[in-house]
Amino acid sequence: MSQDRSTRKRAFVDGVRAFLPLVIAVIPFGLVFGIVAAGSDMGSWLGGATSFIIFAGAAQLATLQLVDAGAAGAVVIATALVINARHLMYSAALAPAFREFPKSARIVLPYLLTDQAFAISVVRFGEIEDPVYRRWFFTGAGLGLWVTWQIFTVVGIVVGAQVPASWSLDFAIPLMFVILLVPTLKGRPELIAAIVGAAVAVAAASAPYGLGLMIGAMSGVVAGVVAQRVMP
């Protein structure tokens, strides 16, 4: 039992440590998100609460942007969930490891499943098979990100309330999307998906109900699938 406890502690600390190098990227992202939330139509409270309720940066930014643009509620929800569909892959990849966890952990821990927590955990899970270690390692990595994200959302909101509109800080939103986009361009089909997605979204920008983004995104996905089939 005492060995179990020391394993938990070591695994948790290892998880937090594995997350630490990513802090450099998460802090400015959280700050920018908070600043944007403070200036959004949703406002500081609800905009900031998305960090707790949704806890997925790109989807949170898109939600604020679409609500600001006056998109229909159903379209905002559908678009945000499409953005988060990538978590299906993470969930599928981690499911065999999570099957060894107690039921409570299988219910609670998926809330902490982010791009970063997945990337860190999938590497460590390949090295260490002990379910106790895996559970607490994931908890450490996931909570490390969660705490950082909440804190810097709030700091960003406080800062953002002081920033005048003439500073064009709303431009930080597309800049964040560019930063998130670049590492996803792993091959030519991905590049084609991005180019088609961008072009169609621009062409469809005035589509009703804020559907332009969804139309662009779907076109990009189809283009990527086709490109992958056609290209060697």
Binding site: A58, A62, M89, L213, A217, V225
Partner: peptide
């Protein structure tokens, strides 16, 4: 779903969701 593997027909399109969506988000803005 349990730990049934994700079917290929779902896996392939999901790979392209991130690049397509992020580009579609950034470009009009």
């Amino acid at each position: 779903v349990g730990d049934r593997a994700m079917p290929d027909w779902a896996m392939v399109p999901i790979r392209f969701v991130a690049p397509a969506v992020l580009a579609a988000l950034a470009a009009p803005a």
